[in-house]
Amino acid sequence: MSEFFAMGGYAWYVWMSYGACALALALELAFVRARRKRALEELRMSTPAQPLRASALGAPGSR
């Protein structure tokens, strides 16, 4: 097991590469989810307290 993490003496380079990728992708996913959540939140705030049901407005796409 420790042999695996040692990466034949190249542990610093290999794990800095893989670690940075894992961290970057995890952060991006978290940011995108937060952004979508915030966008929906602001949408909810900007519409009347009693929003009309979708059916009342016609099916989505019938603008």
Partner: peptide, 12 residues
């Protein structure tokens, strides 16, 4: 935002 269809997202 402002497009009426978006309100359907709130309902859902």
């Amino acid at each position: 935002r402002g497009a009426t269809w978006l309100e359907s997202l709130i309902d859902l």
